[in-house]
Amino acid sequence: MNDESNRQALQEDLAQLPATDPQRRAAIVPMMQSLQAERGYLDDKSIKEVAQVTGLSTTEVEELATFYSLIYRYPAGRHVLRVCDSLCCGLRGADRLLQAAEKYSGVSLGKVSPDGAFSVLPSICLGLCDQAPAALLDGEAVGSLDEAALQALLQRLQQED
């Protein structure tokens, strides 16, 4: 199922519910995820869209949007590399990786590269401690990283676009 049909199914479910039904809220996170999958991040307009579809207020949507680490309220690159900085990766050099990421990309953490190609973000433990230091690239695990591997990865991303 793609994100658009996903969203349509959600909207159909919502249409069955009365305006004040507490279950409407449950659609907020899936709705945000689906929009973000298409747009890369949620701008104010997207928040308004989620509010409109769920029948909740923009403030109520924002309460959730700003809580979650995987919902981006600021532009993110077309590719997002999330580097784990928790203990197991930390023990195996995550801090050096994060520094290297800034150095090779020339972009500071959390920012988007000038060509919009990628962002590098620190992340909490990704459940990849057996492959530490690890990262997620667009949701795919990349393990056993070192500075050279990271540099290659960033270069590949730049070339792909």
Partner: peptide, 19 residues
């Protein structure tokens, strides 16, 4: 009411409006 809420988390919880 629905236009005053709690945003963000940790020691950054922010009480305000969407805009």
């Amino acid at each position: 009411g629905d236009d005053l809420g709690a945003m963000r988390l940790r020691n950054e919880v922010y009480f305000g409006r969407f805009q």
